[in-house]
């Protein structure tokens, strides 16, 4: 991940606890677009490279939420059957779609890839919208006293994807 992208995801003056996750959504959108574009051009080598990166970063994002943010939110509010559970469910749905994309990529099936990508895009955007407009503000409000290290966790996981974002 280039340094300027690090600065976009982790600005020096993060306004809120969840701001890095918010910014990382936009970065993942970018990775999705380059993957889909490569598949549209039937450039399977580039598509595979872009997809790997996209997939790994999405996993880094999901695991930061599932292992750091959501447990902290659930413990602070006592709400375990609410929005965080729905977000976990949608992560599982998206993971299934990643598997389908990987299979279409291996088969170099452009139509199948385009169909799964379209489905993933809308599910992903709807999911991001719910997080950005509803769940993240709830987390920012409820975790003010004992904030978990969301930024450090995401940074560490992204560093594992590519060693360019210093912790």
């Amino acid at each position: 991940m280039p340094q300027n992208m690090c600065a976009l995801i982790f600005p020096k003056n993060s306004m809120t606890l969840t701001q890095p996750l918010n910014n990382h959504h936009k970065h993942c959108d970018e990775l999705f677009a380059t993957t889909e574009e490569a598949a549209g051009r039937r450039n399977w080598t580039l598509c595979a490279k872009n997809f790997d990166r996209f997939h790994q970063e999405m996993e880094a994002h999901f695991s930061t939420e599932e292992q750091v943010l959501f447990p902290a939110f659930e413990s602070a509010t006592g709400i375990t059957a609410g929005p965080s559970r729905m977000m976990r469910f949608e992560h599982t749905q998206m993971r299934e779609l990643f598997e389908q994309m990987a299979a279409a990529l291996r088969a170099q099936d452009g139509d199948e890839f385009a169909g799964v990508a379209e489905t993933l895009l809308i599910l992903m955007q709807q999911h991001n919208m719910k997080e950005e407009n509803m769940l993240y503000p709830m987390c920012d409000r409820s975790l003010g006293a004992h904030p978990p290290d969301v930024e450090g966790s995401l940074r560490k996981r992204l560093q594992e994807v590519e060693q360019t974002c210093p912790v």
């Binding site: 599982t92 389908q100 199948e112 385009a114 169909g115 799964v116 379209e118 489905t119």
Partner: peptide
């Protein structure tokens, strides 16, 4: 369809 499937079966994608 996805809600109907739960997490055991994957429904066909949107372009189908």
């Amino acid at each position: 369809l996805q809600r109907l499937c739960g997490l055991t079966v994957v429904p066909p994608n949107m372009k189908k």
